[in-house]
Structure formats: structure tokens, C-alpha cells
Amino acid sequence: MNGDESHARNLIEQACSAWRQRDRDGSIQDHPAWHDLSAAQRVEVFDATVALRRIEAALDPWGLSSTGRAVMARIMQ
């Protein structure tokens, strides 16, 4: 695997996270890593995220994925 492939794999993995930054007015921002990916790699992020969120939800007592917990954290602020 060359350096570019390894870098792309790291970006894909980061973009699968539910963490997203918010700007000053509270608007949620795209993951910075997502913008550096090709169309095919973005689809890979989507597919991996679908599987990850099911795994996360299966482990959570409320059935919430990391996305669900991020949203709940936001409304409880």
C-alpha cells in the first residue's frame, strides 16, 4: 500500500465518525476529511457508516448509535 492509499484510508475512517464541528451560529459542518475524498471513497464512507451505526446501536441500552447520541447531546445542551 502506498502513502496516498494509506492517507485515503485514514480519511475514510475519520469521516465515518459522528463528530461534526459546529460554526458560531450552531450550523453543523461537513467533516473536513470528507472533502478530500473521491466520489467512490465517499460512497465507501456511507456504506461503512451504515454498518458501524448498526453495531453502535446494538451495544447501546437505548438502541442509539453515535449519531443518535450526538443528536441527543445537542438537544440536552
Binding site: 461534526r20 449519531t67 445537542r74
Partner: peptide, 12 residues
């Protein structure tokens, strides 16, 4: 999926 950061859309 190839055009939009769907995680942002889902949370919003």
C-alpha cells in the same frame, strides 16, 4: 452519498 456528507444531513 457521493455528493453530500450524509452524516451532517442525518443529524440536522
Amino acid at each position: 452519498a457521493a455528493r453530500v456528507d450524509t452524516e451532517v444531513v442525518v443529524q440536522e
